[in-house]
Design a protein around this nucleic acid. Structure first.
Ligand SMILES: Nc1ccn([C@H]2C[C@H](O)[C@@H](COP(=O)(O)OP(=O)(O)OP(=O)(O)O)O2)c(=O)n1
Ligand SMILES: [Mg+2]
Length: 1187
DNA sequence: ATCCTCCCCTAC
DNA sequence: TAAGGTAGGGGAGGAT
């Protein structure tokens, strides 16, 4: 066990901020601390109301505003206050415009701001009558007007029923800046109020939380928090104990900085230039001063300090000044390795279990059978392994650490060292005080991995249900060891453990200990008694006695905080817990924790081995070595963190909806240089999150948002000590959701699929009885019911089209430029003719893309209008009822036919996909926990104080109550994205096929075979040929009626039309060779909906190649192909598919002699593409792809 | 009563 | 010198 006592606490100061809009110029309000806002009104018996329902009603009554502004209020105040509201779908589009300046505020913050700025004091109590909002994305009307013509928005002066925020301007002005108003007073109070802090003690004497609190009065206090480094206390032996430094924190937490918005959001905002100085700000406390944006002298100091510090090249190298810092840091971070290993093991075990389970090998757990849980764990793992290279230290006090300096952390210490009181996680300084002759060994991560591999290999041989706990720890559940008598069973269990220990020792040379008990808790306790290289079985009759003698913090999940709370009620030993009523425990610790402890004290642990919930978040953070000398560096670092995050997201094949940035800032009273070298020292922590309308994994999007959030705090870059980004509300990532890609994975849509549900249920003797698949009538928000998805799919009032969308239709070209903005999938694209004013507001990268796109599209624009095809009057008529809800019928019918068809086709695809996903949603939404079947006795809730001495621990995992987050938002965005691409692509893909078919220009019944060039086919390698043919069959069947040939012909037709287009290029991007590229943009649609199967792609390649074998492929197309394949490698991860495609391409280019310039170019493209693909493959850590 | 968000807290 | 990461349980309190 290694406890980490060293980290310490941090208190969190919660801050709420409001703001104006834009990233840069916006005014930022430090509306801080309005944590008590709602409480305030509650006390006044006034309840805040949301306008949500009214706004919705309004939207329904006015279809035109289906998407767009719902309300715009202005003119009541002086200065004018603009309130803009818009719904979720519009938000999604706005995000596409790089709406980084959209700010998301919660109602309290908004209300705070509004009131503080504009409401007369005496009006405060009347607040409830100003129906305010709900969390929202905020944007002022001026900004909104820049995005779209104001006329495209629907303006509502007042919401239907109540008066919308109507402030009578009376004395607003004075109000605004006054500090004397009650409000100001209130605000001020909140300023320091409200803070929570906690500290963790450390046995290791390390940074310690300091409470410097000042506790305020009865109201909440905001305070700084902690993470101070100090040193000193620590308890020597025994479990590490918390340091009592508890300061009470008055109120529990209060608010949050942001909340999720729903369909409709209301917004507030001062004018751009309006400078609403938040009333207070005048009497800042020391803490406040630190937070204040300005304080130049101090700021300069910290940045200058860092600059000076970084003069030393060695420092530079080990801090954020080094461009490779993140990489290097993670390579050396033991904690990062531990986390990574754990995740990998978890997923490997899951996969293993899934295989085993599917083999009709039902759990070998007999419900009634006696359980023998074995907890197996290496003794001083890192140290033991590292000692293999330094055997002479084996019996001397030895530790594993990076260095011998005072701040070096001991990852693991051997038993001789423990005799001195040294512990894992302790700082070297403290350890040497305890044991002067400590030997220090370096880490050997590869060796740890290897030892672990052998360890698990051995464990799996033993059989039974296995659960990995960490790199060096595992749980094995072998129940009903049969044998007849209990005694024999116990003996057998001991024997198994003995054998296992011998096996591991033999394989790894390191000792493992095994604890055996009737449940996980008991096994763990047994392990501790087994510890130095031994084993121990706690038999039922001894459980209570053994447990009773333990200190409470020896129980899993009980550490500093909980221990502190228990101490307060006189509980020190586990046996003491039995004297406390369950009611009192739950009141003190919370319902779950209280009950869990009550059970633990009695040897009860309902957790089962094997339960491994699915991942719910992915994050990357660094809280060491952070020393910036300017804001740019900080933002770049955040951006790099986002790149790392993207890597991990892709690795997990997920994308997410909510991004949170975590910031550690040097506490006002903390020294510039903490005791630990480049450590974070005592810090205040700040988190902030934003919701994307659409899930994403794109580093650019994440980076921009993260940087924006960081910027919003206006901290001094020099005071930053730690940064992190976390993505939650995950959804499976599916590069090509359209087709199952030939393989047999039918409904297996990705990551979240694991039969966790079934498995889990099956393993659960209690709840299991029912149907494992029971979808759990969640509150109607399982995948298909997701509001976001319903938007587009639900036949709602098909009115009003977003202008941007319409524009999108015109912009056919360039997939590249847009790609980065396609946040994980949206059907909206950037308008081709952005308003200059808007451009100016956009982040550079986006602006650049827009400009590039605009110029390109204007120059090549030959989209729909150019199509000669007789525009059939309205092929869509019969399909009228199928017009996607997002389209205005009128606008829709005004579109060129081909575009219409594409839309319909893609829409259809979307729908299908969605349906399929929905159908499978049951099985893919496992994770949700079953309700607690446990007796949920009293639930009396008394606030369990948090922070100070106590908090609550998390006990061993197990089912938790229905978790909202568990819901996996159904994702059809991907398909939407695809359709978007196809919209732009304008050619190729199923969309075109659909169009062709609908127009009746092609016979849908043509034989599949005719689509393929028999001659070519015959020459293909047998395996490839078979697969291609098979896929064609499948595609045909799936598409019922759609003829691939239509795609081809259609494409040919389009190609011809473009004949005169742009052409020639000479240099292959990144290529060394000068090439000649063909003039005909084939307009291949690698990313369009449906074009994802090998068959479809090879079809396209056939045509493309044939059409361009003389002139060579168009550079854009070549790039597109390359990009697409790389994406398949990195995101879709179907190497097989890539290999097939390249194989086919190679086949097309099979002639040795290039009799034409075109063929030569093609070969070069093939080479280039292959090289790019290999590079991508290598980047994933694999060897070369065999083609 | 139940959901949801924001954190605290714990473990390795 | 030093590499103080990371995921998930669960509590508090607002929203519904
Ligand atoms: N604060 C900590 C705790 C643990 N670890 C790493 C090093 C340990 O070797 C490994 C396993 O942790 P254990 O808690 O199992 O501790 P040990 O294996 O070192 O000792 P033992 O299991 O004998 O108590 O995790 C770490 O780096 N930092
Ligand atoms: Mg161990």
């Amino acid at each position: 066990m290694g406890s980490r006592l060293d980290k310490n606490s941090n208190a969190v100061r919660k801050r709420i901020e409001g703001h104006t809009f834009s990233d840069e110029g916006g005014e930022e309000y430090e509306a801080s601390a309005f944590g008590g806002f709602n409480d305030y009104f509650r006390r006044k018996k006034i309840k805040l109301q949301n306008l949500d329902s009214e706004l919705r009603a309004s939207a329904n009554d006015n279809p035109q505003i289906f998407k767009g502004v719902v309300a715009h209020v202005t003119g009541y105040t002086q200065p004018p206050l603009h309130i803009l509201a818009y719904n979720f779908s519009l938000h999604r589009e706005l995000v596409q415009h790089g709406a980084g300046f959209l700010q998301y505020l919660d109602s309290k913050t908004m209300a705070t701001h509004i009131i503080a700025s504009h409401l007369p004091p005496k009006k405060m109590v009347e607040f409830s009558k100003y129906r305010i909002v709900k969390p929202a994305w905020v944007m002022d009307s001026i900004q909104a007007a820049k995005l779209l013509p104001w006329s495209d928005y629907r303006v509502i002066e007042e919401t239907p029923r109540q008066k919308t925020l109507k402030f009578d301007g009376t004395n607003l002005a004075s109000q605004t800046n006054t500090q004397t108003s009650p409000l100001a007073g209130y605000r001020e109070q909140s300023k320091n109020s409200y803070y929570t802090n906690q500290l963790k003690g450390f046995a290791e004497g390390v940074d310690r939380a300091h409470t410097h609190n000042s506790s305020p009065s009865q109201t909440r206090m905001n305070t700084p928090s902690k993470y101070q480094t100090g040193n000193a206390n620590n308890i020597s032996s025994g479990p590490t104990k918390p340091e009592p430094k508890r300061d009470e924190v008055g109120m529990p937490q209060s608010t949050d900085a942001s909340t999720e918005g729903d369909e409709i959001c209301l917004v507030r905002l001062p004018d751009a230039q309006e400078d609403v100085p938040m009333p207070d700000e005048d009497a800042p406390t020391a803490e406040e001063a630190a937070l204040a944006p300005a304080e130049l002298s101090k700021e300069m100091t910290s940045e200058e300090h860092n600059a000076a510090l970084l003069q030393d090249p060695r420092m530079r190298k080990s801090s954020t000044a080094n461009p490779d810092f993140i990489k290097q840091y993670y390579a050396e971070s033991r904690l990062h390795h531990l986390s990574t290993w754990k995740a990998e093991l978890k997923s490997r075990m899951q996969k293993l279990a899934a295989e085993k389970g599917s083999q009709a090998k039902p759990p070998k757990r007999t419900p009634g059978a006696r359980r023998y849980i074995m907890h197996v764990d290496f003794d001083s793992f890192f140290c033991a392994v590292s000692l293999k290279n330094a055997p002479h230290f084996a019996n001397k006090p030895t530790v594993v650490a990076h260095g011998a300096g005072n701040g070096s952390e001991i990852a693991s210490c051997n038993y001789p060292a423990r005799k001195f009181g040294v512990k894992n996680g302790m700082w070297m300084k403290r350890a040497r005080e305890l044991c002067p002759e400590l030997n220090v060994l370096p880490y050997d991560f590869p060796a740890y991995e290897e030892a672990s591999r052998l360890f698990f290999e051995s464990i799996l041989e033993v059989g039974g249900v296995v659960q990995s706990v960490s790199i060096d720890e595992a749980l094995v559940d072998r129940r009903g060891v049969d044998e007849g008598s209990i005694w024999r069973e116990q003996e057998k269990a001991d024997q198994i453990a003995l054998d296992l220990r011998g096996l591991v020792k033999e394989k790894t040379g390191c000792a493992v200990s095994v604890g055996i008990g009737g449940n996980i808790l008991v096994a763990k306790v047994a392990l501790r008694k087994a510890k130095p290289a031994g084993q121990f079985q706690i038999k039922p009759e001894n459980v209570l006695v053994i447990l009773g003698e333990l200190k409470v913090n020896d129980l899993p999940g009980v550490a500093y905080s909980i221990t502190g709370k228990l101490e307060e009620i006189g509980v020190n030993f586990v046996s003491d817990i039995r004297q406390i009523s369950k009611e009192r425990l739950t009141r003190t610790l919370g319902p779950k924790t209280g009950e869990k402890l009550w059970e633990y004290a009695r040897g009860i642990d309902r957790a089962e081995v094997g339960d491994q919930p699915i991942r719910k978040s992915v994050s990357a953070e660094v809280n060491w070595g952070i020393r910036f000398i300017n804001q740019e560096e900080a933002e770049e670092f955040v951006f790099n963190l986002c790149k790392e995050l993207e890597r991990r997201l892709l690795n997990e094949q997920v994308k997410g909806n909510q991004l949170t940035i975590k910031i550690m800032k040097r506490a006002a009273d903390a020294p510039l240089d903490p005791p630990k070298h480049l450590g974070h020292g005592k810090c205040d922590t700040f988190n902030k999150s934003t919701m994307f309308g659409v899930a994403t994994h794109d580093a650019h999007v994440l980076g921009k948002e993260a940087a924006s959030m960081l910027r919003s705090f206006k901290f001094n870059a020099g005071d930053l000590r730690g940064l992190g980004v976390q993505l939650t509300k995950l959804e499976p990532l599916k590069t090509s959701a359209a087709a199952p890609d030939g393989s047999q994975k039918q409904l297996n849509f990705g990551t979240f699929k694991p039969s966790t549900n079934a498995t889990k249920a099956a393993l659960d003797p209690i709840q299991d009885t029912g149907s494992p698949e029971k979808p759990k009538p969640a509150s109607g928000r399982s995948g298909s019911n997701d509001p976001i998805m319903d938007g587009p799919l639900t036949p709602r009032k098909p009115k009003a089209v977003h202008p941007a969308f319409t524009l999108a239709k015109v912009n056919e070209k360039d997939d590249k430029a847009r790609t980065p903005l396609n946040i994980g999938g949206t059907q909206f694209v950037i308008p081709t003719n952005p308003d200059p004013a808007v451009l100016a507001e956009l982040p550079n990268d986006i602006r650049a893309r827009l400009l590039a796109q605009a110029s390109r599209s204007s120059e090549s624009r030959k989209p729909s209008p150019a199509l000669e095809r007789p525009r059939t009057q309205s092929p869509a008529l019969s399909l009228a009822d199928e017009i996607p809800p997002e389209f205005d019928p009128e606008v829709f019918s005004g579109l060129p036919d081909d575009v219409k068809m594409e839309i319909l086709a893609s829409y259809k695809t979307t729908r299908v996909t969605a349906a399929a996903a929905a159908a499978s949603s049951q099985s893919r939404l496992p994770q949700s926990p079953r309700k607690d079947r446990l007796i949920q006795p009293t639930k009396q809730r008394t606030p369990t104080k948090r922070g100070r001495p106590a908090g609550m621990p998390s006990l061993r995992a197990r089912e938790r109550q229905a978790d909202a987050n568990a819901k996996i938002v159904q994702t059809n965005f991907l398909s939407l994205k695809n359709s978007s691409n196809s919209n732009n692509q304008a050619y190729g893909g199923e969309a075109s096929a659909a169009a062709a078919v609908a127009e009746g220009t092609e016979s849908p019944d043509e034989s599949l075979w005719e689509e393929l060039d028999p001659e070519s086919l015959a020459e293909l390698p047998e395996d490839v040929r078979k697969e291609v043919v098979a896929e064609h069959r499948q595609m045909k069947a799936q598409r019922s009626g759609l003829d691939l040939r239509a795609i081809i012909n259609n494409r040919k037709r389009l190609l011809q039309q473009q004949e005169s287009d742009d052409s020639d290029d000479t240099i292959l991007p990144g290529g060394q060779t000068t090439l000649h590229f063909g003039p005909k943009p084939a307009k291949v649609a690698f990313t369009s909906a449906g074009l994802t199967t090998v068959a479809a792609i090879t079809d396209m390649l056939n045509v493309w190649y044939k059409e361009t074998s003389a002139e060579g492929p168009h550079r854009n197309d070549a790039e597109m192909l390359e990009k697409y394949l790389v994406r398949v490698v990195l995101e879709e991860r179907d190497l097989n598919k890539v290999a097939k495609i390249l194989k086919w391409l190679g086949y097309l280019n099979r002639e040795d002699v290039s009799d034409s310039l075109g063929k030569t170019s093609w070969k070069a493209v093939l080479q280039q593409t292959t090289a790019a693909v290999q590079k991508a493959v290598h980047s994933t850590g694999r060897g070369s792809l065999i083609i």
